[in-house]
């Protein structure tokens, strides 16, 4: 082993002059983007995992088109008209897929990084701030969600399941759903102690997935249940997407979107603070 020439080492022991200026400069960068850059680099090693995720919605849509759609026939759509079941259920599945993807990224992945990977410990030894970590994780979940949503819409369009030009807004709305659930999921994760606690995440997401009027219209429920379901965030997302894709658009959609946005912003704020509290002790 030969000793490397020390003069090559990137070490300048700077005098203190101009230090404050350098401190300021170093503090101003967008730390979240750099953590997102890291995730993108990790996924370069596993791009196939990333890309093959597109198949999941394809399987679901195919199965519904071939199977359940035939069994169910037509159901009452958002405008009151009868629509084929597959047209009815496809936008709901997009909403569910946006929710599940965001929840997965912001719960399992974040918990692993928080407890086992020590990723955030390493990151917070650098100028990156806790709030930037939260923003990066949610941003990353959205980037992934965007790819899947675009793929989903392409499949839907090619299967003839899109019936309105408003459907161009479906991808941004899927991102909004992803944002709300990623932020809430991440907030929940900061309170988790062990993997067993993830059953609580399932406890929240499974009923949402099953009962938020994804697979059948709200009208099958008794009135009291309907009121509860109408307040769930996934229901808002499902209705938003279904109305856009089937072309039953009205001003009420703005309120639904605002509801999801508020959930996302609140979750983002809390999770940023919680990560700081957990790691900077």
């Amino acid at each position: 082993m030969t000793a490397p020439p020390l003069s090559d080492l990137p070490l300048r022991m700077l005098p203190s002059a101009g230090r404050l200026a350098r401190l300021r400069q170093a503090a101003g960068g967008p730390g979240s983007l750099r953590l997102i850059e890291r995730h993108a680099r990790v996924y370069r090693h596993a791009w196939l995992v990333f890309a093959s995720g597109v198949f999941e919605p394809l399987f679901y849509l195919l199965s519904i088109g071939l199977g359940l759609g035939v069994l169910v026939g037509r159901v009452t759509g958002p405008g009151g008209q009868l629509v084929p079941y597959r047209d009815f259920v496809a936008p709901g599945l997009l909403a569910v897929s946006a929710m599940n993807g965001a929840m997965y990224d912001s719960t399992f992945n974040v918990f692993f990084r928080l407890k086992y990977d020590k990723l955030y410990e390493a990151v917070l030894a650098t100028p990156v701030r806790p709030a930037e970590v939260a923003l990066a994780e949610i941003g990353w979940a959205l980037i992934r969600g965007c790819l899947y949503a675009v793929a989903f819409m392409l499949v839907m369009t090619s299967l003839g399941l899109v019936h309105s030009p408003w459907a161009v807004l479906a991808v941004p709305v899927a991102l909004l759903i992803g944002f709300a659930f990623a932020a809430m999921g991440m907030t929940g994760t900061t309170f988790m102690k062990s993997w067993q606690d993830f059953d609580y995440i399932l406890l929240a997401s499974t009923p949402l997935f099953l009962f938020s009027a994804t697979f059948y219209p709200l009208s099958v429920y008794p009135r009291a249940v309907r009121v509860v379901v109408e307040w769930t965030p996934l229901y808002q997302g499902v209705v938003l997407l279904r109305d856009l894709v089937l072309g039953a658009v009205g001003p009420a959609l703005l309120w639904r979107a605002a509801y999801l946005a508020v959930l996302g912003v609140v979750g983002l704020y809390i999770s940023g603070r919680r990560i700081g509290k957990l790691l900077l002790v």
């Binding site: 069994l71 026939g73 499974t206 099953l210 697979f215 099958v220």
Partner: peptide, 14 residues
């Protein structure tokens, strides 16, 4: 939950 959603919810349509 699955049984309720699939069997009753979806079931009512089928």
């Amino acid at each position: 939950f699955y049984l309720g959603a699939m069997g009753f919810g979806l079931g009512s349509l089928v």
